[in-house]
Nucleic acid binder design. Structure first.
Length: 418
RNA sequence: GGAAGGUUGGCAGAGUGGUCGAAUGCGCCGCACUUGAAAUGCGGUAUGCUGAAAGGCAUCGGAGGUUCGAAUCCUCCACCUUCCGCCA
């Protein structure tokens, strides 16, 4: 959630920010109008309530008969005002949930992913003396991926990860945890179900995201789309000592996404599925240092990719393509030779105080005051997509897959063959 | 799934209709005393909204209700603890 005082004082800036994120800036005017009405109503309510409180005190001191009729009138009037106030409050909150985080001033402006800014390309693209195949052809032939059977069992956009591919999954998880816990990240396996109220606070049930979530009506819980969603709330209502920041976690969980609105997009294979596993980094940082922390998380992502010896590029996401909660976002895109293109495998976001406000996560400043922390999240390995990267980059002429050096010890072999 | 008990400020814990935003203790902060510390004494110590400020309003797990007035009474819900059942 965005800072309401900031909207009141910087409405033009917020409108521009919304426009740059391709949201309707008129929402701000509507919001400000309602906000003002709500404040007027609140003040009227408070005044009348004050009158009632005084009256009650007088009655407790005696002479209740004389004052009773006045008290009863106040009671009736108050309940009317209260319901008007409630309506205003609801509409106001509804509008608030339609305002995203505002990008930093120096985020590249742009409408869609075509205007993202490539910062660097790292690693040498493999050269093949044959036409490289796509991961699904190789994976199916070697018995590593089965989407046909998965679709019969579970529907479209599911996959079985089998044999050495399943072993590779655990190897990747282990590699990520080994690498990151050495840097002081706290290892975690979070819940994958989350209460609506908490989810809202994380900004992940906003108007544009709700359709993306799985929801169990009977239990009133959602399935998380990422371990980010339950790692942020681990410090709900906490106050950090300043010296304990940044606090970093590396979490593993399955992620669930309805993929609503992506019909026809990447329908084949396991690139875009309803369920996948992911290692995620999460950080709670001092607001003055969150940009620095953001770069650190990005460097961790790059380190992990470099350990796999797979070529990738780093992209700064333009305003129009950014996430709802983000003030700045980098993506790591992995080279997929079978497709002849870079595809998003990692994302790295600074949500500033957009999530910490909803979660009420603060730190104590040197002069004893409390202020909101900044919250950041970054993909470690999105397993399915990394597998694609490994398979396509390390394929051999014979249709086998060389196991990246660093994973060989985990998997127990140098090459995956049929 | 069944039964019982519980949820109050950083913590412990009092409080069963009005003077309770809340006793007391611990903790924490400040001051005094002290070479320093401990001990002791004095004072302070929840959050949010609103307001230029003074102040006002709200909050005792959550939502409703009764009442002129609710931490306190009623209803529903959530969570915790213990026991039974079930289960990896």
């Amino acid at each position: 959630m965005i800072d309401i005082t900031f909207i009141r004082e910087n409405s033009e800036k917020v409108k521009k920010g919304m426009e740059s994120k391709r949201q309707d800036p008129k929402i701000i005017d509507k919001f400000l109008r309602l906000d003002e009405e709500w404040r007027a109503k609140t003040s009227a309510y408070d005044q009348m309530k004050a009158e009632q409180n005084t009256l009650s005190k007088e009655m407790s001191a005696g002479q209740s008969e004389n004052l009773l009729s006045k008290a009863q009138f106040l009671k009736k009037r108050l309940s009317e005002i209260e319901s008007e106030q409630d309506d205003l409050k609801k509409s106001r909150e509804d509008l608030l949930s339609r305002i995203p985080n505002i990008p930093f001033d120096d985020v590249p402006a742009g409408r869609n992913e075509e205007e993202n800014k490539v910062l660097r390309e790292v690693g040498k693209k493999p050269e093949f003396d044959f036409t490289p195949k796509d991961y699904l052809t190789i994976g199916e032939k070697l018995g590593l991926i089965d989407v046909k059977r998965a679709s019969e069992v579970s529907g479209s956009r599911f996959g079985y990860i089998l044999r050495d591919a399943a072993l590779l999954e655990f190897a990747l998880i282990q590699l990520a945890f080994d690498t990151l816990t050495k840097k002081g990240f706290i290892p975690a396996v979070p819940p994958v179900m989350i209460k609506p109220k908490v989810y809202e606070g994380m900004g992940r049930l906003a108007a544009d995201q709700k359709e993306e979530r799985y929801y169990f009506e009977k239990d009133d819980v959602y399935l998380v789309g990422s371990s980010e969603h339950t790692m942020g709330p681990i410090h709900m209502n906490d106050v950090f000592e300043e010296e304990n920041l940044p606090r970093r976690y590396v979490a593993f969980s399955t992620c669930f996404r309805r993929e609503a609105g992506s019909y026809g997009k990447d329908t084949k294979g396991i690139l875009r599925v309803h369920q996948f596993d992911k290692v995620e980094m999460f950080s709670f940082a001092h607001p003055d240092k969150s940009e620095e922390e953001h770069k650190f998380l990005l460097s961790c992502q790059e380190e992990l990719m470099q350990k796999l010896e797979i070529p990738y590029r780093v992209v700064e996401i333009c305003t129009g393509d950014m996430g709802w909660t983000d003030a700045r976002q980098f993506d790591v895109e992995t080279w997929f030779p079978g497709q002849g293109s870079y595809r998003e495998t990692n994302s790295c976001s600074n949500t500033t105080d957009f999530q910490s406000r909803g979660m009420n996560i603060k730190y104590k400043t040197k002069d004893g005051k409390k202020a909101l922390v900044h919250m950041l999240n970054a993909t470690g390995f999105a397993i399915g997509r990394v597998l694609i990267g490994i398979i396509e980059n390390n394929q051999t002429k014979e249709g086998n897959i060389r196991v990246p050096k660093i994973l060989q010890a985990y998997v127990g072999k140098e090459e995956i063959t049929g």
